[in-house]
Every structure is written in C-alpha cells, then in structure tokens.
Write a protein that binds this DNA or RNA. Structure first.
Length: 925
RNA sequence: GGUCCCAUAGCUCAGCUGGUUAGAGCAUCGUGUUGAUAACGCGAGGGUCGUUGGUUCAAGUCCAACUGGGACCA
C-alpha cells in the first residue's frame, strides 16, 4: 500500500515548531540569555577584538516604552549584534535620562490632587522614586525586546557620581569664563511666585482690555506732513506699557501716514481701514506711504515716561490684527526679548516676583506697588496705565476683548511673561562656536545632510540659557548675596560636586549654607558677603550632554570619543548638539566619530501617528506579534526616512517572518539524520546544484555584510526575503525534496544536498540573527540539539567566513541560463495544467529539440542527467534538430512509481500490482 | 512663517556618475498539490516614476516652482 511506502521515505523531522507563538515564547529566551550571561560571554569572546563603542542616548524615564523607543534601541542592537559577530569588542552601557519637567510636573500634579504640599527635598524624593519605577519597567521591556547590554552598569543621570560629572561640566564652562547672568522672559505665575514651563500652561478664554496707543515721533521733518506724527501700537496688556522700549515694524510691509485732522498716525497700509474705523477717525486720509525698513531706528517717545522708544524691524510682525506696529517690551515677551537682544535694548522688567512694579527709579510713582495680576475685573496696574495714557493723549481707543490666554495650571490664574535673571553660557566667547563648527567637520554624519542640519543649529543657537526654575534637576551651585547678585566659582562648583558625589544632590536642598561650603576654599571676592544658595536647576540638556564624560571617560573599556551615536534626527538640535558643546568646551573636540540618525514612525499613509496609536505601548506589540516581528518591521524599512507603520505593513511583515521561519524549519528538519562530521562532504565534491546554492549563499552573505556595514538593514531584509522565497523555496528546496525524501539515507546526492543545507542554514541564521535574534537562536538550538535551549547560543557564533570559498562564477552563469530556460518550461507546464492534462509537474514528460550549435542546447545537453530534477518532471529527452529550441510537454506515459511519484515508461501503474521504480527499489533495500 | 528631509506598482524596497519596452519580494487574481500542510509550487494582471515647467539629441535619474508628508525652530 502507498501508505507503507510513505513510511520508507526520509521525510523531514524536527521539534522546531512551525507556529512561532512569539508573544508567549520569547520572554523565556530572553530570560535564558540573561541566566547564562550571554552579554558577558559575547564580550569575553571578543575581548581582544577592536573596540566598537556605541554610546547610548538615554530615554526619558516617565512611561512605558512605545514603538519609537523600539525603533531606536533595535537599530542600536542590530548594529552591535552585527559588529559583535564580526569580532568587535562591543561594550554597551544603556542609560536613563531621569531629571526634568515632565516628571516633576506629573508628580506635582498627583500631589496636588491628593491635597499634599511637600518641601523641595520631599518632592525630589517622589520624583526619584517615579523615575526609578519607570527605569525598572523600561529595562524589563528593553530586555523583552532582546536588547543585550551591560544592564548592571547602566547609567542614570540622577546617580550622584553622574550628577557630580554634570557639575564638573558646568565648572569647565566657568573655567573658560563663559557663564554669565542676564535676564530672559519666562512664564510667571504670580500667586505661586514661580516660573512655569510650556507644559504647565493651560489656555483659557480671558477678557482683557484692548488698546490703541500713539507714540509720538518728534522728528517730523522726515515726512512730507508738518503735523505731529505718531506711530500707533495695539496691545491687550496695558501693564506692559511701562516696560515698552521699542516699536517693531515689518521691514517689507508698507506703512501709511494717516492724516486724521490734527494729528498724523502711522499704521500698516493694509490695516488703515480697520484702524480708522476701530478708532473712529472718520476723516482719516492716507497722505504718504513708507516702507517699514525706512523707519528703522526712527525715534518715538514713550507716552508717559521720559524715554525714547525707537522703531525696530522684526519679521514676526503681521497684519492679522492690530496696527502692524508692535509694542515691544523685551522683558515681557519672547519675540520682544529676541528683538531686544538684536538691537541691544535693555531686557527691562520692572515687575518683581510678586507681580508688582518695583521702584527702580524709572517707574512713575503712581504705579509703584501696583499688581499686574490679570483678572476679569479691575486690574489696578492696567487701570492706572490707561489713566496715564489717556491724560497724555496717547490713548486713541480702548475696548474689551476676549481671547485665549495662558493660565497657571496650579493657581488657574492668568500668567504673565516676565524677564528673570538666568544663567547663560556665552557660545561665541574664546572662539567656542568656531571650535564647535570645526568639530562638526571631523564627524561622519549619516545621512550626510545631518551635517548641514547640526551646522545650522550650532550657527543659529543664541547663548545657552542653562538655568531653570525647577526642582527635579541638578542644582546650580550658585550663591546669592544680599543684593541678589549671583556668584559662581569653579572651585566651589567642584567642591560641591565632590560632596554631591558622596551625598547626592539632595544635600543642596537640605543642608545649610555653611555646611554646603564647609571645607571649600572660597574666592576672595566672596569674603564678607552673606550668601544664600540658589534654587535654580540646570537645563537637562547639560545632564544628557555630559554623558560622554560621565560614561565614556569613566569606564576603562569604553572609548572617548566613541564610534557611534544613533538617535532620531531631532537630536541634531538636542543631544548631538548639547554633547558637542560640552565636549568642545571641556575637551576641545567632538565626543563621537559617527552620527547615525533615524526618522520617525508615521502612519502607513505618511501622516503623524495619532495620539491613541502613539500611546500604544511596545509591550502591546510584543505580546500580540512578538519582538522579532517588531524588529523585522524595523529592519524592513529605510529608517533614515520616515518609518511607516500600519495593519497592512504588520501583515506583510508577518508573512515575511513565516517565510523565514519555514525556511529555517525546512532546513533543520531535513538534517535530522545528518551529522556533518560523519556525513558532510567537501564542497568541491558536491553536486552542481548544491554548489550553485552555496554560490548563491555566498553572494547573499557578502551582500548582507555590505548592507550591515552601511547600516542599510532594509537591504538585508530584502535580500534574505528574496533568497528564502526565490532561491530556496521556489527552486532549491523544491528540487531537493525528491533527493532528500526518496534516496537512500547515505546516497551521495542526498548527503551532498544535506551538506549544502547545513552550510546554508548556518549562514542564513547568522546573517539574520541581528534582526531576528529570538527566532534565529531558537532555530539554532533545534539545529544543534533539537531542543529549545542550549548553553551556546547563536550569538556566540562568528559571522560566516567560509562563504567566499563557495563562489563559482562559471557555475553561476550556467545556472542563470538554465533557470531562465526553466521559466520557459514552467510556462509550458502551466499550459498543460490549465488543460487538465497534468497536475503536478512530475506528471510531465519534456522533449527538447534544438540545434547542436546552439549554446543553450549545448548547456542543456551538458546537464542532461540533471534536467529532470531541475524541472521537477519525470523525463526529459533531448533531440537534435535545428532552429530555436522547441519545448514539447506531454503527459508522462507508463506507470507512476507509488513511492517517488515519478513516471517510468516500463512501470506498471496499478494499485493491485504495485511496482517500484529501480531507484526506489534500491533505496528501500 | 523659517531651515532641513522625503515622494518609483496595494505594501516594503532596487534603479550607480542622465541612454534600449522602469525591476524585485510580498500582497492580489487564477491554478496545482496535500510527503515543509495554519505549509509549498506554477501562471497572470498591476506603475504616464507626486504635479508643472526647464536643461539636454535623451530625465525616474539634473535644475526650478508647486503639492502632499515629516523633523526641528518660530
């Protein structure tokens, strides 16, 4: 019976499951790797290899990982895994970015909702715990993703030793005399007496006065009119008028002089009509127009303070509302501030922490002590300013306006914008900016446009504001005297850094001044002063920007500069830049040799990920699809551009994954009775088909090698995908089935093919391991011992090196031709199949007629004995003739061998009287 | 609004320094097989290379503008 013959076949056997069940099974493998200290073993294996140091950009520790994290970390992992396979020593110290507003904000909010109010030190404890919690979570999720690293030596920006290094970076800035104190406007909550960050602002509707104010221009001779001329501004914050230092116009806008009878007003030409009607100047007539540019530096006078208010140019001026002439108070607006810097204006802010006007010698007496806190009712400051404007004849019109206005998230009151003293780093001093630009040149930027991007960022960056009025960060060890002047000293910073290294930054918030400074030599200039420690913290970009000092220079096995930073392209302005500045200032050169950037995850249609999709955690994807699927998806895209994600893409990746998995499985299962030591054959002795397959494998390995080298992982994906589906599944494996299943166990052809499969598997699994570590390692375990886990995981295997010996150019060309001919045969077979004459190709007989002079026919003749296998048919006859090669396909005649299913002319075909073909008869002896 | 980046079949990618009818895999459709079987084979259809101009004997490939998308900044 036929079934009995099936039992005599060498059918594939393996315990390697067809169904991956990755979501469930991967965690065990990740655990296994950890249990056997795989990372350490890899390091040990390559301990004498050349170093390749990738410095990890630390993720922020405030939530579950999402796909963006996976993208970044997987790319790093692929690089390192490949480099390790190539014999490089690849120490990898993962890091965590712990300080910062989002955490402080979240924690504060929770405390507020619980009705608790804590001291700064207590708040910081909570932030620390919050951050620590997410470090644990994220670490677990990264390990689940298959990220191998030195997790025991991870770095945290909140570690005391790290914090000390941050302060030493600051000290190096002070050494170079780059740090200075100046004002800059920030959002300010008056009831809370604190600065607010963008994230702490809530926008709500608010009713404000809306006023038109005329600033007289004394020099009327420059205009054709001889009436008094005023330039008109429009504002909704009357209380900032006392701080007005300029009026901004757009350089390329046209401005009109509107004659309203007794006076002439300047407003943007486009807005004349609305201005005239808003201010009820019915008789207004345009008598002259000038271009904005020509008004630059023309002097106007402050309406009630004896002070010039020059006209300045600014690109941000629009004609969407107002008059096209913008009231400019550098101490009360960011645009105004930048314009102020540009024109060398004072960053003037007469409003103190409590939101009232200080007596600074300029503020009119009637305003001193008045609060500028906005409310929907009477605001004393606004009222008195309006009164003064009105009395001086500058107030053309006032009305109420309701608009969206920033409010404090905590006190729910309107916030003000006010300049407060900040610490800055002068970036142009001592040629630092040029140094930074030079350092950029020494770095290899991938893709190359990255250089332009960071160059633009470095060139355009204003002086670095490094102070924040926050709690969850590294304190700036500045001391303030009785007059409020801030003092920073390099010795003191270093002394404090040493203390913080031992006791953590909390000492700054808990210890008394004396104990902080105890044992530290103070500069002479500080003597005799009563000092108070400041409460500002450092910009967190100094935190992460100091990582190369705190990590690369602190650990002996790492290098400074390192070989590679690999982050999203947004870091050109962020971490790449902050790291560059700290390195250039403190060490004179860039901390990295190569910068590789990736794009961002977008929807399949190319649009930004919506909130709900973006909020989907990495764990969700790993549980549902598997880490290897996530990783394969990442490898499948050209990550230098946007990385699309969607259901269709996930499905495609799933299909590609199954193709690879089944390829592994087919190979493993057909080696069940193969022992390379005993049954392996020398490559030269292998059958041509097998040598061809090895040639293809060699090509694949070298192409993938190059692709990895160039960080073009999508090429690895494409190459392997095509290799599995075309070279193997459709050709090599399909042809091999007959040999492997039906020939006698030790038949040379069978062993030849098994030898090739053995080599191919070892190569393929190694090539794909950086992308698919779980599945590749799983397959490797089954390949080695037919068990799920082994002690020598795949990651300890070297990159395949014997592949170059498999190349065979002549054979490759011959096969290219044979395979092209095979396509023609297949077309014919399909025709016969459509007619219903045959089912499987094995049912066919092929007669080829061609000229003996025809090179293709000669080639076919050379491989005559192999053609049946190549075409997977029962018989192939070659007949000499003339002209083009004719392909005659007919149904095979005679009988079908019940064991191998091939047809033989002299075989009886009948269930009753079964008869085997000679080959099979021999095989089952 | 500014700077930078991207744009080739339904999807993911090739297409080098411009040169014959633009390629691959997957997906789709049809079909065979049931000895890789929640697997595998065979065949077929599918793109005016985002749009519009320009340079050139010749452009997916160079230039410009525009459109759409993304990153950063404002």
């Amino acid at each position: 019976m036929a079934e009995n013959y099936k039992d005599t076949l060498k059918l594939p056997q393996t315990a390697f499951p067809m169904r991956a069940n990755l979501g469930k099974r991967e965690p065990a493998r990740a655990d296994h790797w950890e249990n056997i200290s795989l990372y350490e073993k890899i390091q040990e294996k390559n301990s004498d290899g050349p170093p390749f140091v990738l410095h990890d950009g630390p993720p922020f520790t405030n939530g579950d990982l999402h796909l963006g994290h996976a993208l970044n970390k997987t790319l790093k992992e692929i690089v390192l895994s490949y480099k390790a396979a190539k014999g490089y020593r690849t120490p990898y110290v993962p890091g965590w970015d712990c300080h910062g507003l989002p955490i402080e904000h979240k924690v504060s909010k929770e405390l507020q909702e619980a009705g608790k109010s804590l001291t700064t030190a207590e708040l910081r404890e909570k932030c620390d715990a919050f951050s620590e919690h997410w470090i644990d979570v994220q670490k677990r999720q990264f390990k689940r993703l298959g990220v191998l690293g030195d997790w025991d030596r991870e770095y945290k920006t909140k570690n005391p030793a790290y914090e000390a290094e941050i302060l030493r970076t600051l000290a190096s800035f002070v050494d170079e005399d780059l740090v200075y104190r100046s004002k800059k406007p920030v959002y300010w909550s008056i009831p809370c007496e604190t600065a607010l960050a963008e994230a702490e602002i809530e926008y709500k509707d608010h009713s404000s006065p809306s006023i038109w104010v005329a600033f007289d221009i004394p020099d009327t001779k420059r205009f054709t009119t001889n009436k008094p001329v005023s330039i008109v501004i429009w504002t909704t914050t009357p209380w900032t008028i006392p701080a007005n230092l300029a009026v901004a116009v757009h350089p390329r806008l046209e401005y009109a002089l509107v004659d309203a009878g007794e006076r002439v007003f300047i407003v943007a030409k486009e807005l004349v009509e609305t201005f005239v009607s808003d201010c009820g100047l019915e008789n207004g007539v345009v008598v002259e127009t000038v271009i904005g540019e020509s008004l630059e530096k023309v002097e106007s006078r402050h309406p009630f303070i004896d002070r010039a208010s020059p006209i300045v140019l600014a690109d941000y001026v629009t004609t969407e509302s107002g008059t096209g002439c913008v009231h400019t108070a550098p101490g009360h607006g960011l645009d105004d501030y930048l314009t102020g810097l540009k024109y060398g204006l004072d960053i003037y802010c007469p409003v103190n922490d409590k939101g009232v006007y200080d007596d600074d010698g300029q503020i009119p007496e009637f305003l001193i002590g008045e609060s500028v806190l906005e409310s929907d009712r009477w605001v004393p400051a606004n009222g008195k300013v309006l009164k003064a404007l009105s009395e001086s004849g500058a107030l053309l019109k006032k009305q109420k306006i309701t608009h969206s206005y920033p409010h404090c998230w905590r006190s729910k009151t309107p916030v003000v914008f006010r300049a407060v003293d900040q610490w800055f780093v002068a970036l142009d001093k001592n040629g630092k900016r040029n140094k930074a630009l030079e350092a950029i040149e020494s770095v290899n930027w991938i893709p190359d446009w990255g250089k332009n991007r960071i160059r633009g960022a470095v060139e355009a960056r204003p002086d670095w504001c490094i102070s924040r009025q926050r709690s969850w960060g590294v304190p700036i060890p500045a001391f303030y005297d009785d007059e409020g002047r801030g003092h920073l000293d390099t010795n003191v910073i270093r002394g404090i850094a040493d203390k913080i290294e031992r006791g953590g930054t909390n000492i700054w918030f808990t210890n008394e001044c004396e104990s902080l400074l105890e044992g530290i030599e103070l500069p002479d200039a500080w003597s005799g002063k009563t000092l108070t420690p400041g409460t500002d913290t450092l910009d967190v970009w100094i935190d992460s920007g100091s990582s190369h000092f705190a990590v690369l220079k602190e650990k002996d096995d790492l290098t400074w500069p390192c070989d590679l930073y690999l982050e999203g392209s947004d870091q050109h302005r962020g971490w790449f830049q902050s790291s560059l500045w700290t390195a250039v200032i403190r060490s004179g050169s860039a901390p990295y040799k190569n910068i590789l950037t990736h794009g961002f995850i977008v929807n399949q249609d190319g649009t930004k990920l919506s909130k709900s999709e973006g909020a989907m955690t990495l764990e969700h994807y790993m549980d549902k699809f598997g880490a290897d699927i996530v990783r394969l998806w990442i490898a499948s895209t050209d990550f230098r551009n946007d990385v699309p994600m969607g259901d269709e893409i996930l499905k495609t990746i799933g299909d590609a994954y199954r193709l690879i998995r089944n390829t592994y499985r087919f190979q493993i299962s057909n080696l069940f009775d193969f022992d390379f030591e005993k049954n392996g054959m020398p490559v030269q002795e292998l059958h041509a088909l097998d040598r061809w397959a090895l040639d293809k494998t060699a090509t694949l390995a070298s192409a993938c090698d190059l692709a990895y080298e160039r960080y073009e992982f999508h090429r690895v994906y494409q190459l392997c995908n095509q290799f599995c589906s075309v070279t193997l599944s459709a050709l090599y494996h399909d042809i091999l089935k007959d040999r492997l299943y039906t020939l006698a166990e030790n038949h040379p052809l069978r062993r030849s093919s098994q030898t090739a499969i053995y080599h191919i598997f070892r190569t393929l699994v190694r090539v794909l391991a950086p992308v698919l570590p779980f599945t590749s390692d799983e397959a490797w375990s089954y390949f080695i011992s037919n068990e799920d886990f082994i002690d020598e995981p795949l990651a300890l295997q070297e990159w395949p090196s014997d592949t170059t010996m498999w190349s065979d150019e002549t054979l490759s060309q011959e096969f290219t031709e044979l395979l092209a001919f095979r396509d023609l045969v297949n077309e014919k077979l399909e025709g016969l199949r459509k007619e219903g004459a045959i089912g499987r190709s094995l049912d066919a007989f092929i007669e080829l007629t061609g000229s003996d002079d025809d090179p293709t026919f000669q080639l076919l003749s050379k491989y005559h004995d192999f053609l049946e296998e190549l075409f997977i048919v029962s018989q192939v006859a070659l007949t000499s003739g003339s002209g083009e090669i004719a392909i005659q396909v007919t149904q095979a005649e005679g009988g079908r061998c019940p064991r191998c299913w091939r047809w033989f002319p002299d075989l009886q075909n009948g269930v009753e009287n079964e008869q085997l073909c000679p080959r099979c008869a021999e095989a089952i002896l």
